[in-house]
Structure formats: structure tokens, C-alpha cells
Design a protein around this nucleic acid. Structure first.
Length: 555
RNA sequence: GCGCCCGUAGCUCAGCGGAUUAGAGUGUCUGGCUUCGAACCAGAAGGUCGCAGGUUCGAAUCCUGCCGGGCGUACCA
């Protein structure tokens, strides 16, 4: 419908005023003004040297005859806006529009979550996982084949710190003693070891030297494919515990990954790639291999350190090469926190020098961090962290307190929506007491709104079709339903799921108002209203599912 | 120092070139359940959109400067 109107407006402009440089873009004005609005008269007036209202009046008159079937009212308002009100028939038709399949046929790799084995999953991982999942859903629903992948550091200094503490806890390289750690405690035990190892690294020079040595041993263990030495057994067992813990977490929040790319796998690829382009792209400096970003107004960064070990930069080069080899993607979306924006520019710029299409096809999408109320940043190095499970448990407790029930769907709905409703980019304030509300603009409000509509539908016979003239409240509801495809298209184009949250909340509000003032069952207009309720519930459910939130029929 | 991001009601956020009164939620105050689910609905109060210039028919939205905050700035990730 939007395209039909835009085409007609563009044609009318050309016919009345000849060719001019105007962008015909329809806006959604407030309902009192109409269903669509255009500012072409304002754009034209300047070029024609005419009064914008006169230009608007002329266009409105022309459009009124050109669009008799689609438009019931055209008015010129304010400085020269042309407001269009759809006929009921056109509105009914417009509400049938599906979101565009704008990415049909494309292969897209979506990388998100990226937790490090041996470390605890904190609230930030919860946020990035939920956001990444929603974005992957958007891409998928626009027709793309999406591969969800996950990158994580199973080698590196943090692992060495952890192993140093693990070895102390075990009293040496005695893998059999790992059996003493109860299965339920695996993740907690590892995270406690990390905190101890990190503290030792910072406070104790001897420990620091030992940790650096362990770091090198871990890399060697991978190059030698050592699974049998006592040291290797400890490493592989604890690493396995971490991946089990991740899988449990992802299962709980309902996302799943096709593939993990551990750094131990991408490191050798990155090392090889960087060395292949040593001299042409990368260069030696102070015993390390760097990419001189200053040539491109970026920072210079180390890709291979002076010990010959790959840094995160080289591992990321390896990751991008591995993703390319595995998928030959049309597009690669990497979702991380903001703090590595500049870093990623350097990595991509370096890759651009020898494989430009990989850099061109990559989108680095970043979000803020989860902050505790009071402005405290979370750090797993310090141990004063809010774990992912703490956030979920707090939401579950709030849910229980309000409803007396335990429902994981509501808990997840609350947490996911609380995170997703904010525009990606800024930091998220998390207040354990207030942030995960079940009322107002929240996930449970939408789930509840959905369940109410389903409850009505369950009481009635099959709804019919929406036909004939609509009453004002019915029209408002259908108008809102009709915006769905536009909103999803926008959210997909911008990779901004929060647009869907804003819309769904408005949609539910419109329905709740409708429901407050109008009967559905046992009303002369039952057939039309049931049909509207059905459309509404389907629309709400589809939107929630795009966000990764389940829409229960009862709650 | 340089670069990037942010500053909108007490709090948490939408809005990011358009409409006489800048929107929500929450919190405060008030009203509505013997009737399709009140996790709901309705109303009141609450804002010099950080400050100062500029561009524009039109600026919270674009540009410049300043103030305040965050992040990054070579061998962490």
C-alpha cells in the first residue's frame, strides 16, 4: 500500500509540476491527521518559488481523483503537509502486508555472545546473547540463511591465570582430583579460580612469571595436540566443563549456536595469515608484528607479540578467515560491546589490504554494557560481578512475588524485553529491584495482552473476515496492526530490534483500550471484532517471537 | 593530548529534519472489577530536550564551540 501511494504521489508531482528533485517518503503521522503523510509540497514549494500550501492543495486535489479507491480523505495541514486517510477497504488490504523478504537468498553469519571458557557468564553476556539472538531472528525472517556462531578464548592469559589457580587447588598436576569438585559446582569453582589467579597475577611477581609460563604451555598443548599429559587432562576437562555450562545457559535462554570457534582453532589460522602478509600489510616493530593503523587514522596494534604468540587481533583475523572458508557469506554481522569499536576497525582495515571483500561484507554492530544502578561496572577480574543467572533469578523472584507462580516463560520475557527495548548502543542500567518489571512497558505486559486475546478467541467460534465499514475503535486497532510490516522492515534494515518493542507495546495498548470499551463476544459486531482480535494476537505473537520471547496462550 | 560515543520529566527510556500542548513506563496523587483475564484501563501533577552560537520555511534531531560523563589510544580480551 505504501508503495502504491508513493508511486501515485511521485506521478502526480511530475504531472503537475514537471521533474523536480523530491524524495517521496511517507510518514506515519498521529492518527488524528491521517494514516500517512507526505512533505513533498514543502520540498517542491522552495524549488518552484510558490506557497507550500498552494502546492499542497493542488496535489491533494489531483491525488483525490487518482487514488479514489485507496484514500477516503486528503487534507493539507500545517505548513503544507498532505495527510492521507485510507479507505476502510484499503486499510484492510494494507494490514495483509507481510514484512519484506529483503534478504532472500543471502547467507549471513551472525557472531554474538562470545564468552570465554574458564570464566563466568555475567549480565553482559546475557544482554549480548539476547540482543544477538533477536538480530539473528530478524535476518532470518527477512529470508536470509543465518549461521549463528560463537567465538571464545580457550587460550590466552585469562586461561593461564585460571589454570595457575586450578593447579594450586589440586595441589599440583593431579587431574584425578578434579573428581572432587561436584558437578553442580563446576562453573562456580572455575570462576573462583579465575578470581584467585587474577589477584595473584597482579600482586605476586613469582605467580605472574608462572602464569606467563603456563600461558605458553597452553598454546604448546594445542600445537602438539596433547590430550594425555596430566596438565593437558586438567585443561581439557575444565574446558569441557565450561562448554557444558555455556550450553546449559543457552538452552535456558533459548538461543543456540551452530558452531563455536575457540581461539585455539583460529589462532594458528590468524598466525599463518598475518605471517603471509608480513612486510606487505603487517610489519615488525620492537620484536612484535603490528599493523600500522596510523596510515588510516587508526591506532597501531600488535597482532603477534614479541614471544611469537598471537594476540586477540591475530585470532580475530583467523576467525574471519575461518568464517569465510566455512560459509562464503554474503554478509557477516559481529555483535559485541562498544569497547572494541576502534580495535575492530584496525583488524578489518588490515584484512581489507589483502582481502577487501571480507571487510566490506562485515558489519560490526555494538551495544553498551550492563551497569548496576549506581554506575558500577561489572568485571569478572575483580569478582564483584552480577552473573547472568543472578539476573534471571532476580526476575524469577520478582515474578513469584507478584503472581505467586513460577513461570520461566514470564521470567525470560521480562528480562529479554527489558534489555531489548533500549536502542542498541547505549549502556543499560540494571537495577535488580526495579529493572525487571512485570508491569507497564514490559515483556509480561505483552504476554498478558496476548493471553487475554487468546482467551477471548478460545471462547468463540472461528472468526470470519474483516469486511465492510469499521467503527472508530476497530479502525484504530487495524491501523496499528497494519504498521507491523513497516516496523519489522525498519528494524531489519537498521538491525535495531527495539523498534519492534516500541511498536508491540503501542499495539497492545491500542488493543487494551479497545477491549476496555468494546465487547467482542455477544455483540452485533462479533464477527468483525473476533477477526480483529485474531489478527492482533497473531501479530503480537509474531513480533514477540522475532524478539525471542514466547507468547503463551495462558499465563 | 587525540579519536569515538553519550547528556530528553525524580528515575529508566522512546523520538534522531517536520505539525498550535516534546512522548512512554515507573514513582507520587485520584477514579474504574456481580459483565469476554484489573499483570488492565482512565485522569492529575512533573521537562529552559547539558550550555551558547549557526544552517533551515521548520532543530531534541544537522553543523561549530564549550561544559559534564564513558570508552579507546602497541604486545589484555
Amino acid at each position: 500500500m505504501q508503495t502504491v501511494l508513493e508511486t501515485a504521489i511521485a506521478a502526480a508531482v511530475t504531472e503537475l509540476f514537471g521533474d523536480h528533485d523530491v524524495r517521496v517518503e511517507l510518514m506515519r503521522p498521529e492518527e488524528q491527521f491521517g494514516d500517512y503523510a507526505t512533505n513533498v509540497a514543502l520540498q517542491l514549494a522552495k524549488q518552484l518559488g510558490k506557497n507550500p500550501r498552494e502546492v499542497g492543495e493542488a496535489l491533494a486535489e489531483k491525488l483525490h481523483t487518482d487514488l479514489t479507491d485507496q484514500v477516503s480523505e486528503i487534507t493539507v495541514a500545517g505548513p503544507g503537509f498532505i495527510n492521507l486517510k485510507l479507505s476502510d477497504q484499503a486499510l484492510i488490504q494494507a494490514a495483509e502486508t507481510r514484512p519484506a523478504q529483503s534478504l532472500a537468498g543471502q547467507t549471513i553469519v551472525a557472531e554474538y555472545s562470545d564468552p570465554n571458557p574458564f570464566k563466568v557468564l555475567h549480565a553482559g553476556h546475557l544482554y549480548t546473547s539476547i540482543t544477538g539472538d533477536a538480530i539473528a531472528n530478524l535476518l532470518e525472517h527477512a529470508g536470509a540463511t543465518v549461521h549463528r556462531v560463537n567465538f571464545g578464548g580457550d587460550v590466552g592469559l585469562h586461561v593461564a591465570k585460571n589454570l595457575w589457580a586450578i593447579l594450586r587447588e589440586l595441589g599440583g598436576e593431579q587431574p584425578e582430583k578434579l573428581a572432587n569438585v561436584p558437578e553442580a559446582e563446576h562453573a562456580n569453582w572455575l570462576s573462583e579460580c579465575y578470581v584467585k589467579g587474577n589477584a595473584a597475577y597482579e600482586d605476586d611477581e613469582t605467580a605472574k612469571a608462572e602464569i606467563v609460563a603456563i600461558n605458553k604451555r597452553v598454546y604448546e598443548l594445542h600445537t602438539n595436540t596433547d590430550h594425555d599429559s596430566p596438565f593437558a587432562q586438567i585443561y581439557w576437562t575444565c574446558r569441557g566443563w565450561s562448554y557444558d555450562y555455556f550450553d546449559q545457559f543457552y538452552a535456558r535462554i533459548g538461543t543456540n549456536f551452530e558452531k563455536y570457534y575457540p581461539e585455539s582453532q583460529t589462532a594458528p589460522i590468524g598466525l599463518k595469515t598475518v605471517k603471509e602478509h608480513l612486510g606487505s600489510v603487517y610489519e615488525e616493530s620492537d620484536g612484535a608484528v603490528v599493523f600500522n593503523g596510523e596510515k588510516y587514522d587508526l591506532h597501531t596494534r600488535v597482532f603477534i607479540n614479541s614471544q611469537g604468540l598471537p594476540t586477540y587481533e591475530a585470532k580475530d583475523v583467523g576467525l574471519i578467515m575461518a568464517k569465510w572458508a566455512d560459509y562464503h557469506f554474503d554478509r557477516s554481522v559481529i555483535i559485541t560491546a562498544n569497547d572494541i569499536i576502534e580495535y575492530m576497525k584496525v583488524v578489518l582495515k588490515s584484512i581489507e589490504q589483502f582481502q577487501p571483500e571480507l571487510a566490506q561484507r562485515t558489519t560490526h554492530l555494538t551495544h553498551g554494557i550492563v551497569k548496576l544502578a549506581g554506575g558500577v561496572k561489572m568485571s569478572s577480574r575483580l569478582g564483584n560481578i552480577l552473573r547472568a543467572v543472578d539476573v534471571l533469578d532476580a526476575a524469577a523472584a520478582a515474578n513469584h512475588e507478584l503472581t505467586g507462580k513460577d513461570d520461566e516463560r514470564t521470567t525470560l520475557g521480562a528480562v529479554k524485553y527489558a534489555f531489548l527495548k533500549n536502542r542498541i548502543g547505549g549502556d543499560i542500567m540494571y537495577n535488580p529491584a526495579e529493572s525487571v518489571s512485570l508491569e507497564g512497558n514490559s515483556g509480561p505486559y505483552l504476554q498478558y495482552a496476548h493471553a487475554r486475546a487468546r482467551s477471548i478467541l478460545a471462547k468463540a467460534v472461528e472468526p470470519g473476515k474483516i469486511t465492510g465499514e469499521l467503527e472508530a475503535d476497530e479502525r484504530s486497532l487495524l491501523r496499528k496492526i497494519g504498521e507491523y510490516s513497516e516496523v519489522v522492515d525498519k528494524a531489519t534494515a537498521e538491525l535495531m530490534p527495539h523498534h519492534i518493542c516500541t511498536y508491540l507495546y503501542e499495539l497492545a495498548q491500542v488493543f487494551n483500550r479497545f477491549y476496555e470499551h468494546n465487547r467482542v463476544i455477544d455483540d452485533p459486531r462479533q464477527a468483525v471484532r473476533l477477526s480483529l482480535a485474531q489478527r492482533y494476537a497473531d501479530c503480537l505473537k509474531a513480533g514477540l517471537e522475532l524478539l525471542g520471547i514466547t507468547a503463551p496462550d495462558k499465563m
